[in-house]
Design a protein around this nucleic acid. Structure first.
Length: 273
DNA sequence: CAATTTACCTGGGTGC
DNA sequence: TGCACCCAGGTAAATT
């Protein structure tokens, strides 16, 4: 599920309940995710205090004095706070039991997620997971000049280009389609052939799309700590994503579906050129 | 090199 | 009902 807005919403939802908490116990029911979870994780974390939760790209960074727990939600992962007594159900692979009596619980049916302990200081410039990542989209580093430089000479369609985490992080399959709709750019357009003014519009569109999605997630933060129901980000609606044949919200032309690198792409053939 | 495909995993939906 | 297939919001490895 999680692209940048969902990961950021998760971070903000968990932070006030989890930061400053001592880890009372760790349970790993399924160590086999994208990489095997370190069997020593319970001993590594027990009685240590979670100091902060940060985000880089789609990774959550759980900061401890003696290292960082790197968590990625993959395609189907979610993190919730549940009462410690609540029994785990299928696909709930990891628990961090907090001193408060709440448990931070990872659910991930497809198991493309990642839970990786990194002892000591985490140097993002050299760590293999982070070293090649592009800029954060909601910072000043993501601007028209940067995008122009990255796109220069590239014949890749702009849609997979936007999803390439080496260019800009956090934009996945849904928000790539949504951002291009907002910028009125056809998803097939070769990245290197888009005029500077339109790349500038794309920067604005990506930022507005992600900001709106974070705001929408923020309105349902309660769902992350209720122990019941679904995380808030399931409730969002989209302009073009998964709307094949439905009217474009701007011009009512039927939305079309295509593919890039085997991933679904949605666009308005009238608004997006 | 850049660009595209494959593999990792499970569940839900569809069509026969 | 059962089964084969396709699809799903990510990433890294393999291949062209």
């Amino acid at each position: 599920m999680p692209e940048l807005p969902e990961v950021e919403t998760t971070r903000r939802a968990l932070l006030p309940h989890a930061a400053g908490q001592r880890i009372a116990a760790v349970t790993v029911r399924t160590p086999r995710l994208r990489q095997p979870i370190d069997a020593r994780l319970p001993e590594i974390l027990r009685d240590h205090t979670l100091r902060d939760i940060e985000r880089r790209a789609k990774y959550l960074l759980f900061r401890f004095a003696h290292g960082t727990l790197i968590v990625h939600l993959g395609m189907s992962g979610s993190l919730r706070l549940v009462p410690a007594a609540q029994a785990a159900v299928a696909h709930e692979h990891v628990d961090l039991q907090l001193a408060s009596g709440q448990t931070l619980r990872l659910r991930d049916p497809r198991r493309f997620g990642l839970v990786l302990w990194h002892a000591g200081a985490l140097d993002e410039a050299t760590h293999p997971l982070f070293a090649h990542l592009g800029v954060e989209p909601l910072t000043a580093q993501f601007n028209a000049a940067y995008l122009r430089e990255r796109a220069c000479g590239r014949r890749t369609a702009i849609k997979p280009f936007l999803m390439d985490q080496q260019n800009v992080v956090g934009v996945g399959n849904i928000y790539a389609s949504e951002s291009l709709f907002r910028a009125r750019i056809h998803p097939n357009t070769a990245a290197g052939r888009i005029r500077p003014a339109r790349l500038a519009a794309l920067v604005d569109a990506v930022q507005a799309t992600l900001r709106d999605a974070i705001a929408a997630g923020g309105s349902t933060l309660r769902d992350f700590v209720s122990g019941e129901g679904r995380p808030g980000y399931f409730q969002q609606s989209y302009a073009v994503y998964d709307r094949t044949g439905l009217p474009c919200p701007r011009c009512a032309t039927p939305i079309r579906h295509t593919q890039h690198a085997r991933r679904s792409t949605y666009y308005c053939p009238h608004c997006q050129r």
